[in-house]
Computed example of a mutant assay.
Amino acid sequence: MNNNKKKLSPRQCKELLSVLNARFEKNRSRHKDIEWDKVQARLSGNQASAEKLWSLNEMERTGGEPDVVGYDKKTGQYIFYDCSVESPKGRRSVCYDREALESRKAHKPENNAMDMAAAMGIELLTEEQYRELQQLGNFDTKTSSWIITPSDIRKLGGALFADFRYGRVFVYHNGAESYYAARAFRGSLRI
């Protein structure tokens, strides 16, 4: 029964592919040299696992608006990022990780970014990936997103987040236990 939990029904797959196709066509500048037919074949064929489609659906369900942003020639994988204009609404008000969540004495958030991403089968964007995303448009102009934090910063209690203000990307730090209504996280998925 547990295996079915991370699998979409045929109807859900069809609906997801329709949404992804429409977004792909609307935002051609994000993937100029990529053809939808090849992406769809990867998503629909034996090459894509049911769990990867489920993860894409989770990205969509939580407001991430996933879209193809690249193709890795070495691995033959398509790369999806959350491309919602602002941080995904269904993932806001979370601290950075479980350690941070457990360290809070009062007013704990419901969840944390690292556990949510793992449960969804995706990874938080790195600083480099976040900067790549910003080359495709202006994201997080009113919100911010947690990004992968180097272990030396995390050991000291901090965590990194980023946003786009005044025409540039800013990377900041906060206590990992902090959380805000306008901060979520953006993920990546390779299929």
Rank of each mutant, 00 (worst) to 15 (best):
S87E: 13
M120K: 03
E110R: 09
W146K: 03
E127R: 03
D97G: 05
L124R: 12
L133G: 04
Q135P: 02
R104W: 01
C95E: 04
R104E: 03
W146A: 09
G90Y: 11
A119Q: 14
S93A: 15
A106Y: 15
H107I: 06
S151E: 14
R91S: 01
E123I: 00
E102R: 13
D82H: 03
S93Q: 11
E102W: 06
Y96A: 02
E128H: 12
D152S: 11
A113V: 07
I122L: 04
K105H: 04
Y81P: 01
D97T: 04
A106N: 12
E86A: 04
L133V: 08
P88F: 07
G90E: 02
A106M: 12
S84Y: 00
T149M: 06
T126W: 02
S145E: 04
T149V: 07
D152A: 09
E86L: 10
D82S: 08
E110I: 02
R104T: 04
A100W: 00
P109W: 05
N111K: 14
N111R: 13
G90H: 05
A117H: 10
Q129E: 15
E132I: 13
T126M: 02
D152W: 08
S93Y: 14
D97M: 02
L136R: 14
G121M: 07
R91Y: 08
M114A: 09
R92M: 12
T149S: 03
S93K: 12
L133E: 11
A118Q: 10
L124T: 08
A100C: 13
V85L: 13
R91D: 00
Q135L: 15
N138Q: 15
M116I: 10
D152R: 09
L124A: 08
R131G: 05
N111Y: 14
Q129H: 08
I122W: 01
R104Q: 10
D82I: 02
F139P: 00
L124N: 06
N112R: 05
Y96I: 03
T143W: 03
D152I: 02
A106Q: 13
Q134C: 15
Y81L: 02
V94R: 13
S151R: 12
A113K: 00
F80R: 00
S84Q: 03
T141C: 14
L125T: 12
K89N: 11
L125M: 13
L136N: 11
M120F: 09
D97F: 05
N112A: 08
Y96Q: 04
D97A: 07
V85N: 12
A117G: 09
P109D: 06
S93E: 12
M120L: 08
E132W: 12
D140A: 07
S84G: 06
V85Q: 14
D97L: 01
P88L: 05
S87H: 02
S151F: 06
A106L: 15
E110S: 13
P88Y: 07
S87P: 06
